[in-house]
């Protein structure tokens, strides 16, 4: 099953590798909204997200020969978009993670189960209200499905920092949601 997922849209990808513009456009049509949303969740600014997604598609099509089906094309493309988005934030010198008091919060599971958070729209609103650093880590872990090793790679932090930051971010999110 996993193999089938990796080879999703294989024929389109293969034709795109040869430079076939129609196939490239079809791939673009399939993924552009998802990638745009990924970028918007990180950047929050329409124009920035558009630039990042455009650059990501251009890079992806130009370097398609390097894509060896180790993941699905979508996952590969999403990684490009996320990396570019994170780099964009780094260039703008926006803090990706709040580094204060991050060492000792691995067990901050308190109150999580009590959260009145089953209204997903409140959750969405709560995520948008999070400080930028927390928002990135919640996005990466909960929405993009990254594990802490991957997050540590992308953000340039240790795995333990990623874990502790995630727990703090989640706690903060619950607080925000409960306050809505």
């Amino acid at each position: 099953m996993e193999t089938e997922i990796r080879f999703t849209h294989r024929s389109l990808v293969e034709r795109s590798k040869t430079g076939d513009r129609t196939s490239q456009y079809q791939l673009y049509e399939l993924y552009v909204d998802a990638m745009y949303n990924v970028s918007m969740r990180f950047l929050g600014i329409k124009e920035d997200a558009e630039d990042i997604v455009q650059d990501s598609f251009v890079d992806a099509f130009k370097n398609l020969d390097r894509f060896k089906y180790e993941s699905s094309f979508g996952a590969w493309l999403k990684r490009i978009v996320i990396n570019k988005s994170i780099n964009h934030l780094k260039v703008k010198r926006l803090p990706l993670t709040s580094m204060d008091e991050h060492e000792y919060h691995l067990t901050d599971e308190v109150e999580i189960e009590k959260v009145n958070a089953m209204d997903i729209l409140k959750v969405k609103s709560g995520i948008e209200k999070l400080p930028l650093g927390y928002k990135q880590i919640i996005n990466l872990y909960l929405l993009e499905g990254y594990d802490h090793n991957e997050i540590s790679d992308v953000l340039g932090i240790t795995t333990s920092t990623s874990k502790s930051q995630y727990h703090r971010a989640k706690k903060k999110l619950v607080e925000i949601i409960n306050g809505l």
Binding site: D33, M40, E50, V53, I120
Partner: peptide, 23 residues
């Protein structure tokens, strides 16, 4: 809490790209 969010990820996909301009 986490499971609920992941199960409802579609809610977080609410932006529409300007496809023609970007392409």
């Amino acid at each position: 809490f986490e499971k609920h969010i992941r199960d409802n990820k579609a809610v977080f996909v609410d932006h529409k790209a300007d496809r023609a301009k970007m392409w």
